[in-house]
Write a protein that binds this DNA or RNA. Sequence first.
DNA 1: GCCCAGGAGCCCG
DNA 2: CGGGCTCATGGG
Length: 263
Amino acid sequence: MTLSLQEIYQIFLKHYGPQGWWPLIEYAGTNPTMRGRLTGYHPGNFTLPSTERQMLEIMLGAILTQNTSWINAEKALFALDNKGLIDIQRLLSLPVDQLAQLIRSSGYYNQKAIKIQSLARFLADHPISSLLTRTVADLRPELRTIKGVGNETCDSIILYALKKPIFVVDAYTKRLLARCGLIEPTATYEEIQALFHTDLAPSVEVYNEFHALIVQHCVHCCLKAPQCVSCPQKEQCEKRPYSAPKRGRSKKTKMSDQSPTES
DNA sequence: GCCCAGGAGCCCG
DNA sequence: CGGGCTCATGGG
């Protein structure tokens, strides 16, 4: 018998506990041993973010962590904070190459510098205070016009920065649901998201916690090579095979031939 | 050294 | 509209 999404949520919450997302550096920074961790920043506190500064930090983190471990993204966030750059106007006035160097630890830093400035440009024209009064349906298509804000980043911004109910789907979500037999491996982002929106009543708290729990579960248990022995729902999972989508490395990127026969 | 991480854009059939 | 390629650092 396949589990429902509600049942999976309850099992994960009981097994892993509240995750305290989205991580905010002021909560990590007070205790150096917490840095780089995905959990424990402010578990159970859904009043955050409470300031526009924290909302901007979350939006920046959403871009910095694209296809990148949180620990590397967070280092870049600390670097920006140290320069007083978690600020829309300062981000815009900084030359893009300097911004790129500051966020080097997050990888793809040239692209992410452009993405961050395109986000900042959008926010300069659409103040966060004005975004907070709008509906999800209204917000989504407009945020998607920002360069570097795709499906997941867009929904992370809406849910975690603006605290409006939309479910964030990521590669982990797809892997988990495909293995459990709740979706086909070919399911699209919208199809997977619709499943959550249909089966769960709209709730910022539940969507927040569930997505964070899925990440926790997939990082520690439902890995590329699944560790089913430690899975809290192993009895009900269909354990279908799932091969991860290809990650651009199929062809070797040789930087070795820099100068064949230079004069 | 190798594998991988909370994607997105672009280009192509 | 789906698939392949590119972008890139740092931790395990």
